[in-house]
């Protein structure tokens, strides 16, 4: 498994190709890419703060759990921090498994846990000022299905 926490942008297509090449024995690869959304139409940029040390630990532990639970052949998580422009990729999850069911399920599991158990905090900066993004109850509730 591979976990990367980085300020730099990444190329989701290139990451997918490299991941699929590494997971050559798997029959299914699923990827999810999260982008910076401009909800209000006035977003200048997004700032993502994280907890160095704990971030890598928390993501690795979520990935290890997903790997065991869904029998993954490989998993990749990339999550950025720092300053991000609208429409830029924030993060990416890739899962590889023998069959598509486990690969899809594992990707949803990883996303649900990354949303509310990985120590990142998003702040939206607009012309009017900056505001921390509030955690959504639906995201917390999504964990109960696992």
């Amino acid at each position: 498994m591979s976990v990367r926490v980085q300020p730099e942008p990444f190329d989701a297509g290139a990451e997918l190709n490299a991941f699929a090449a590494r997971a050559s024995g798997a029959g299914a690869v699923v990827t999810f890419t999260g982008l910076v959304r401009d909800i209000s139409g006035g977003l200048a940029h997004m700032e993502i703060e994280h907890y160095p040390g704990m971030t890598e630990r928390a993501i690795s532990s979520i990935v290890a759990e997903a790997t065991e639970r869904f029998g993954l052949d490989a998993a990749l998580v990339i999550h950025r921090h720092g300053r991000l422009a609208p429409a830029e990729p924030i993060m990416m999850v890739a899962t590889a498994a023998r069959h598509r069911g486990s690969a899809f399920e594992a990707a949803v599991f990883l996303m649900d846990y990354l949303k509310s158990r990985a120590p990142f905090w998003k702040k939206e900066v607009t012309a009017d000022g900056a505001e921390w993004v509030a955690a959504r109850d639906e995201d917390e509730a999504a964990l109960s299905r696992w």
Partner: peptide, 8 residues
């Protein structure tokens, strides 16, 4: 100490 996390 921190607020609820907003990753993903």
């Amino acid at each position: 100490f921190f607020p609820p996390m907003t990753g993903g």
